[in-house]
Every structure is written in structure tokens, then in C-alpha cells.
Design a binder for these strands. Structure first.
Lengths: 178, 178
DNA sequence: GTTGAAAATAGCACGAA
DNA sequence: TTCGTGCTATTTTCAAC
């Protein structure tokens, strides 16, 4: 048995083991933040508020030169932190009056079929696989209640669904602490 | 009574009334699409796949001149169709290992308090107000199970929560038919 | 990470369909 | 109205440091 495994200071852990624990949980995670350094955090936050900011403007905001931020953005992309840049579309402004969250419980043996049906219906604009009684939780966007019924009808032979219409938004999509 | 209110062709509606109904439901809505014309639809779709496309590249993709698409993008913005441009961040790549969907049912009289608590907790990255037994459905992003407990602990005095951990994604966020 | 120059791009005024 | 052309200012990119 090596000496650094000995009980030390009444805590039951060696100094080295305690240090190792600390190393595995970076300081910024302990305080509820992300693993990004401050410059990257500011870049990501700025791009979140406006993904079309020019690199030069972004450079001004974070206090660096344009080539530097440009390189950081490129690296954030290849590191998988930034998956892409998208547009925030108001679906109601293009005729989709109703949004709903649908919990979906496939009948026995129909899990994969149901997943495929969800993926094939473009009105399902998002779907997560979750723990619990209902394996799928999907976001649905439709023009009318009639269209909502049409979409759910497709699943009705193969799954039990619980639909909750979205009445409003308490928290608009945002990033966790960076 | 005007003649165009008379029953016509055994359907119970006048020709003018039928035409009006048709006018209120544009053809593209009948076929499950949006209210955008084809050029705008292509612009929005292209920006959704890459919001940082230059106007000249976008112009090439949709087969128009740069000033034309530029003006259309501006108009889509002021029409409220495009709310903004954002970045798609992989929260796991920045240290947030766990995502969960939380249904939240405030205790009697605590609806507004609970909504405020949700909004103040940055780990709730999204929250919709929905119909049904649980008024709120929130998306939670945390580093660890311990942190998840910490967040839910804040609500525990004022609400009943049901948490489902996200195991994977069946449909990545996408736009409905344009 | 910074600087500076070359190439590409954006924004604007104006003209055409 | 909506789209296209030409000009100018800004921005992006790449080099070298």
C-alpha cells in the first residue's frame, strides 16, 4: 500500500486523492459555470444574441483583434462547442398558430416504428428520448386543431399520446451560465 | 337578405361565402405549408442551415441578386418572421453533462412565485406554459445529478416536480414545412 | 495575439422590368 | 413593387511577426 493512500487528517482521504478530485471538477464547474475561458464565453454569448455579428464587431465587443476572434470561433466550431448558426423563426408569423408538447408512449414492440413516424412528420419540430413512462417528448407545430388531430391520428394505432397545448413562454431559449 | 347568402348547390353555403373561406385559408396552408412565398421560404431555410451565410452566397443559393435577398431578409426581420440569429451550442461540450425535462406544478397560490424562481435559475434554459395538470414544462441543463437536486430543491417548497432525464434526441430542432 | 495589405462583401443610390 | 447594376466603405482572410 502506497503512503498516499493512507488516511490523512481524519477525512479518510489522502492529500493526493483530494487533489485529484479537485482536478476532475474544474473551479468554474464548482461555481456553476461552463468549461469555456472568459474570452470564449464572451464570444459565445455575443453570438447567441446575434449570430450575424461581423468578426470585427465581435472583436470590439471582446476586446481582441478580428483575426483572433475569428480563429477562436473556428476552433469553437471544430471543438463541437458551436454546432452551427441558426435563425430564430416565429412560427406563428408564418401561419402556424398552435404549438404543443406531446408525450408519446409506443405500444409494446412499436418503439422504433413510432420513432420513425415522428421523424417523418415535419410538424414535429423537436423530439427528445427521455426516461420515465413516456419514452418520447416531442414539440409539435401546426396551423389548426384539425391539423393537430391529423398528425396525432397517424400515431394513434401505435402509441398512446398526451398532448399539452403551449399557452405561452416563461423562459425563452437561452444558454446556461458560461 | 342578399342573394349571395342563399343556399347554393346543396352545400348550405353561397358561392361568395365559399370563396371567402378559401381566401382565409391560403392554398399553401391547405397543403401544410407556411405563408411565405417561395423566395422567402428558400431564404429562411438557407439561413436556418447557416445563419452566417453572406448575402452574396445566399443570393447565389436562391437565384437572386444580393441587394434583393438582403432587402428580403430585412423585411422578414421587421415582419417578425425572423426574430434573430443564434448559435447552436452543444451544452455537453462545455461541461453540462445532463439535460432533463421537468414538469412543474406549483402549490395553490404559488404560480407566480414558482414562475419567477424558474426564470431566475439560469439552469432552466427554456420553459413553456402549457395546458393540463402541470402548468410549466421546463428544460434543465446541469453538470451533475447533484446540481440537478440543488436546482429542484429550490422549487420543492412551492411546487411538485416530475423530472425526466433526456437520454438522446430523435428529432433535432428543425423548422416546420415552409 | 497583433498588424497590415489584398480580395471579398455589404450597403446605398439609381435605373429597369 | 420588386429586382438588378455600379460604386464606395467595410470586412474577411492571409501573411509575417
Amino acid at each position: 500500500m502506497r503512503s498516499d493512500h493512507f488516511i490523512w487528517k481524519g477525512k479518510g482521504y489522502s492529500a493526493r486523492f483530494l487533489a485529484m478530485l479537485k482536478a476532475k471538477t474544474p473551479k468554474n464547474l464548482q461555481s456553476g459555470k461552463s468549461t469555456l475561458d472568459e474570452a470564449d464565453a464572451r464570444i459565445v454569448a455575443a453570438l447567441d444574441s446575434d449570430a450575424r455579428l461581423s468578426m470585427s464587431e465581435l472583436a470590439r465587443l471582446v476586446g481582441m483583434s478580428a483575426p483572433s476572434v475569428s480563429e477562436r470561433v473556428r476552433r469553437l466550431g471544430s471543438a463541437g462547442v458551436i454546432r452551427g448558426f441558426t435563425v430564430d423563426v416565429d412560427t406563428r408569423a408564418i401561419g402556424y398558430q398552435i404549438r404543443a408538447m406531446v408525450r408519446i408512449r409506443p405500444l409494446p414492440g412499436k418503439l422504433h416504428l413510432v420513432e420513425k413516424l415522428i421523424q417523418e412528420r415535419p410538424e414535429f419540430v423537436e423530439c427528445d428520448k427521455i426516461t420515465g413512462d413516456d419514452p418520447f417528448l416531442a414539440r409539435l407545430v401546426v396551423h389548426s386543431i384539425e391539423q393537430m388531430d391529423d398528425v396525432l391520428e397517424v400515431l394513434s394505432e401505435h402509441a398512446v399520446t398526451s398532448t399539452a397545448v403551449i399557452k405561452g413562454t416563461s423562459v425563452k431559449r437561452r444558454l446556461p451560465p458560461l
